[in-house]
Simulated assay, not measured.
Amino acid sequence: MLARRRLPGAAAGAFCLAALALVPGSVTAQSLMNHNSNAPVDYAADRIELQDRANRVLLSGNVDITQAGLRLQAARMTVAYRNAGSIEIERIDANGGVVVTKGEERASGNVGIYDFNKRIITLIGNVALRQGGNTLNGGRMVIDLTTGRSTVDGRSAGGAPGQTGSAGGRVSGTFSVPKRD
């Protein structure tokens, strides 16, 4: 059974994809700017390992993190923190079937990175974004939590030239169209 715990620190993370308006290669996420990144972060995992000297926590096995209506799931996550009198989360690296959800929106990828200092969330490898009937696929998605702007490209970050995501190096998707009489 998964035990639910709370990650310490006021800077605990925002993995938000709410209110996405899809535009080819670009995503506007209005509510990203309004997500309470100071809300407590709760976590559950099959196993936790505290590496105090390295200032990190390793979570493995059905890892589930929630914060203010946002949910991040993956097989493994590493939480890097600094201890400045209190624990402050600096970065979370997630891998193994990464899924980020808020409300009806769902984004997934092979790897997820949240950089608290830059306020950026990045999904890498076989990125898929679903909002209602709209879909968006690519190799990498970068979400800027300061501006609420997200970009998607076909090539996975850090890959060699020619290495692509699931869309053959291009961004692809489907827009739903309202029913007309």
Score class of each variant (00 low, 15 high):
Asp153Trp: 04
Asp93Ser: 14
Ile121Asp: 05
Gly158Asp: 04
Asp144Thr: 04
Leu70Tyr: 04
Leu58Met: 15
Val41Thr: 12
Ala11Glu: 15
Gln51Ile: 09
Ala12Leu: 09
Glu88Tyr: 10
Ile87Met: 13
Thr164Asp: 03
Gln51Ser: 09
Ala18Gly: 13
Thr66Arg: 10
Leu129Met: 11
Asp42Ser: 10
Val79Gln: 02
Arg130His: 13
Phe116Thr: 13
Asn36Met: 08
Val100Thr: 01
Pro8Lys: 08
Arg180Pro: 07
Ala11Phe: 09
Gln51His: 15
Gly162Lys: 02
Leu32Thr: 03
Val98Asp: 00
Arg170Met: 10
Ala19Leu: 10
Asp144Ala: 09
Gly158Glu: 06
Asp64Glu: 08
Asn83Trp: 08
Gly125His: 00
Gly132Ala: 09
Ile65Met: 11
Val23Arg: 11
Val98Lys: 00
Glu104Arg: 08
Gln67Leu: 04
Val171Tyr: 00
Asn36Ile: 05
Ile120Lys: 00
Ala21Gly: 08
Thr66Glu: 02
Val100Ile: 09
Ile124Arg: 11
Gly96Ile: 02
Gln30Glu: 15
Gly132Ile: 09
Gln67Tyr: 06
Arg71Asp: 00
Pro40Tyr: 01
Gly9Gln: 04
Thr135Arg: 03
Ala157Val: 05
Ile113Asp: 03
Arg5Gly: 12
Asn55Ala: 11
Glu104Cys: 03
Arg180Ser: 14
Asn62Ile: 02
Lys118Ser: 13
Ile121Asn: 09
Leu145Lys: 08
Ala14His: 12
Ala80Asp: 15
Gln163Cys: 07
Phe175Ser: 12
Thr78Asp: 10
Ile87Ala: 05
Ala74Gln: 03
Arg53Thr: 15
Val41Tyr: 02
Gln73Lys: 01
Asp115Lys: 04
Lys102Trp: 06
Asp42Lys: 09
Leu129Glu: 01
Lys102His: 13
Leu20Val: 10
